[in-house]
Design a protein around this nucleic acid. Sequence first.
DNA 1: CTGTTAGCGCTTTCAC
DNA 2: GTGAAAGCGCTAACAG
Lengths: 334, 334
Amino acid sequence: MATTIKDIAKRAGVSIATVSRSLNEDEKVKEETKNLVLSIAEELDYKPNLLARSFVTKKSNIIGLVMPDIFGEFFMELIRGVDDVCFSKGYYTMVTSSHSKRSTVESIIDYMSKGIVGGIILMTPSINDEIKKTLKNTQLPLIIINSKSELEQYDSISLDNYKGAYDLVNFLIKTKKYKKIAHISGPKENNDSINREKGYLDALKDNGIEINKSWILRGDFTTEQGKICSESLLKMKNRPQAIFASNDMTAIGCYQIARNMGMKIPDDIAIAGFDDIFVSQFLSPRMTTVKVPIFDLGKKAAELLVKKIETEKVNSKKIHHLKLSTKLVVGESC
Amino acid sequence: MATTIKDIAKRAGVSIATVSRSLNEDEKVKEETKNLVLSIAEELDYKPNLLARSFVTKKSNIIGLVMPDIFGEFFMELIRGVDDVCFSKGYYTMVTSSHSKRSTVESIIDYMSKGIVGGIILMTPSINDEIKKTLKNTQLPLIIINSKSELEQYDSISLDNYKGAYDLVNFLIKTKKYKKIAHISGPKENNDSINREKGYLDALKDNGIEINKSWILRGDFTTEQGKICSESLLKMKNRPQAIFASNDMTAIGCYQIARNMGMKIPDDIAIAGFDDIFVSQFLSPRMTTVKVPIFDLGKKAAELLVKKIETEKVNSKKIHHLKLSTKLVVGESC
DNA sequence: CTGTTAGCGCTTTCAC
DNA sequence: GTGAAAGCGCTAACAG
């Protein structure tokens, strides 16, 4: 049997309340008594039963990270960012994905309603009414990672996809002097994709370049679709000088097609991506893309959440929306 | 206030004990009563307080995954594998790394002794006496991920690095007819590295090829070190025909140096790696390497652990050691 | 400053 | 089959 405060109390000749107080460095326990208790606790190799503690305080030092999926660099960096903060602040990270087997809503419900976590970082491609309803049913501190600004009611944190895309395309026009720039988008309902496309469109517009709709193709963030789209772009009679792909995976598809068709990058066709995933630096030529600070995103989310958990009663009404900047990575592909 | 079994009991006109039993589908509660209780629970949107339950049963449906670090594909796949099983079996995954800030031992102690997790999957590059001591102090179900076979006392699961390297080098000799094969190893104390080197040495030996010690260089699994080592290998008067790098990151360094020196892969120098990380398939020529089933590793570890947790009392004495096979990936770099 | 006491929500003997 | 009651380890009033 593990040591409990009872054991310590008996040994120290004090009450369990005093032990509890000493352990929590909380009240005005006499320095002497406290030291005695602490030394006995040490001696007995006492470990508090966190379950009991959480149970009675209704607080948990576990943070639930709910993601739409678990794979690849993006989620890895996110987890790492969250873990980084959690570790330094004495929290633990519980990682879940809203797998194919359970809907996101269900995992949220599972999480929230069972008292295990002290707060949630929720990342979903979109938030529907069902999720909103579930969210309403809980009082747990919550941070949403999402680019959708409609979620005014929740604290949120997101990446500035719009500005990232805008800056990139603006760079292609202003510095690289391209005028004929195509775009392969991401999935239709995906907010990241939508904002990147907006940035692309506005950059063209602001530079007085007319938009050629036949140069805007729907991709889905995969290399495969990148191949299909870039092939049709490169076979056009009036083909673009540059392709801005909505993410690096798509851009990789463009690379492969360009190579297959015997085209030189960037001389025959310039290619730019978005994300700056690990492989992008190893492609030749090195891809021009946009670096997204996912690690920071995770960190910020966790920091915000921890703050919220620990000051819950103080300022529970103020809602924060944080947007993180991206960074242009200039390679040799444009 | 959330619904508790008390609420249900009152509403159903039964005792809380009956409610508890019905909920756990356990005893021989009368079908009728059970159904009544269940329907009321449903109606009241009852969610069991898992903390209370774990507290009293001393069981937890959370699995602690302790890793030496959190970054890159390896750990991502590991987490994904563990999560995959956990999700399907109703467990949750708590992810921690033994960060720079805490020693692995400490996190283990934190984990084990506080009653939060029901079992642990521990991955460390090596297990020292301190860790062993800590491990002894706990009764928690445990699975170790480690290639060190000395750990007879613990259930463990590992990758067959030896055979993977052996098969690769054997392939280089038998099929590709190389005789002059160099090796850039990994870190000195790293078990994966040690076993890969052993596989390399034995494959040479078994094929009657004399070992040239000047062709065996110490790397550290980084691209940077891969560059340094490969450069010195390629500048030798008697230079090897092929380089077997201890991992893909190292091999990437070799690629870069070969290119810098104007050498053609594989004509001037053949290069092989180990791991088959994501970028390897995008290199040109595609890297010949060894695929390691990390996802499966995570899955198996979680499966074993869950089994152990759920049958703890039944067969607690039998110790399992599982070794997963790797798979040769033949690219065009050799 | 410290002790007593009452639960937290749930499972689990032990009776009936 | 079902209820009463004890208790898991801890915190938090409430007294002194």
